[in-house]
Simulated scan of single mutants.
Amino acid sequence: MKRNSTEFAILPAFHGDCILIKTYDINNDEFIILIDGGTAQTFRYTLKAELKDVNRIDLLILTHIDSDHIAGLISLFKSSLIDNIVIDEIWMNHPEIVEINNDELISTKQGDSLKELILLKNPDVKLIEITTLDKSIIKSGVEFIILSPTPQIKEELYRQWQLANLPKTNNDNVNISSQKEVYSNSLEDLSKIPFSPDKNINNDIFNSSSISFVLKCLDVSILLLADSRSEIITESLRLNCFNETKPLEVDYVKVSHHGSLNNTSQEQLGLIQSNNFIISTNGGTADHKHPSRETIARIVYNSQRKDEVLTIYFNYKIDDIKERIGDFINDTDFEEGNWNAINKNWF
C-alpha cells in the first residue's frame, strides 16, 4: 500500500499506552509501527478493531515490562487475528517476558512466555534488544533516535528480574497531586516547585528501562517517552547535543508515564521545543491517578515556549478524566499561559 502522509493514534488504553503509527518510507510504501498494547481490555475494545484490516506490522515495540503496556500484546498474540498479520521486527528488552493473571500482575516465575507466543505465531520475526548504544536506527528513511534505556539500566533490569520472587504490579506508588491545596494552586506557581521524584532510578527499574526515542518520519517528528525517567532522557538529550539554546524540535511529545509527577522535569522540558504534548490516560487506577496538575503546570510554563498556542491533547474526554481524579485543570487555568486542552485520538 502506498502512502504520502503520516497518521497516528494514541488509542484509548485505559491507564496504559497503545500507539499505532501509519507512516511511509522513501518509496512511499506504508510503514506501520505499533508501540505497546495497553491493558488486556485495550485489545478487546480498541486495538482489535484497528488491526482487523492490517496484514503487516513493520515494527512492534514493547517499551517496557508493565501490565498496562504488555497485556494487550499478550492478548493479540493469543488471538486468531495475529495469524493474518506478518510482523517484520520486534523491539523489546526482556530476561523473560511472562503471562499476567486477571489482576494484571507481572510475575517473574509463572505463566506463558510472551517470547514463546511471538515465536510460535511469527517464527521468522526479528527480536531485537534496544539500548542507547544503538543511537540512531534508520529504516528506509524512517529514523529512530534512541534515548533510553542505557545498557547499564537494561542490565540492572535483568538482575532485579532474576532475583525477584514475588509478582510485580503495574502500580508504582507514584506520588500524585491529590491534595486539595495542589488543585487550588495556580499552574504558574506549581511550575516553580523544584522537580523531586520520590524514587531513584534503580527503585523504579521497570519505568527506567523504557525504550524511548525520537521518531523522525519523512513528514512529522514525535518524541515518544513511554514511562521513561526524566533524568535519563535529560542526560541522553544532552549527549545528543541538545541544550537550552539548541533544543530538540519536534511536532509532538508523548508525555512520559501518563503525566506522572515523577517523570517530567523542568530541566527536561528546557531541552525540548514543541507546541503539542500528548497524555495517554483515562485518569489512572483507584490508587494511582494521572495526570498530575504539576506536570500540566511544567508543560504550560516551560522555558522553551514559543509565542504560539500550546496544546495538550488527552486520549480520553477531559470531563471523564475529571470524574476519576477531580479538577486537575479548570477554566481559570486557560486565562493565562496561551494554551488549551483537547481530547483527540487520531493525529
Rank of each mutant, 00 (worst) to 15 (best):
N338H: 12
T46R: 10
K216Q: 14
S191E: 05
N275P: 00
P247E: 09
N55R: 11
K216F: 13
L261Q: 10
A13E: 03
K322W: 02
I318T: 05
M92P: 02
T39A: 11
H69R: 12
L127H: 01
G259I: 12
T264H: 04
F277M: 00
K22N: 15
I137S: 04
R293P: 02
S209P: 05
Y252E: 06
E50Q: 14
S113E: 07
F77D: 02
L147F: 08
N4A: 11
Q110P: 03
K322C: 00
I145M: 11
Y301K: 01
R159W: 08
I176R: 08
L237H: 02
K246E: 04
W339E: 00
N170Y: 15
E7L: 13
I65H: 01
P247Q: 08
D189V: 13
D53E: 15
I153H: 00
L215F: 12
N84Y: 12
Q266W: 07
I70F: 06
L187P: 00
V54I: 15
I176H: 08
A49M: 06
S178F: 11
I106K: 02
S196V: 10
I74E: 10
I211G: 09
N28I: 09
I130G: 01
G283E: 03
F31T: 04
H258W: 09
K216L: 14
D320N: 12
L120N: 06
I118Q: 03
D83N: 12
N185Y: 11
Q304T: 02
S184G: 03
R44Q: 14
N263G: 05
A9S: 14
R229N: 15
L114N: 04
D66R: 10
N185R: 08
I278V: 13
Y316P: 07
F213Q: 04
A341G: 09
S178Y: 11
T264W: 05
L218S: 07
N207C: 05
D83Q: 04
I272D: 02
I65F: 03
E308L: 11
V86Y: 10
W346A: 07
T234A: 05
D17L: 07
S186G: 10
D189I: 13
L310S: 01
K180A: 13
S212V: 01
K246C: 05
G270A: 14
L147T: 04
P123G: 13
L76T: 03
K317C: 12
K168T: 11
I85N: 02
D124C: 07
D287H: 10
D227F: 10
E7W: 11
T108M: 11
L47C: 10
F277H: 02
R56Q: 15
F206N: 07
L119W: 00
A9Y: 07
Y183K: 04
G141M: 04
A49C: 04
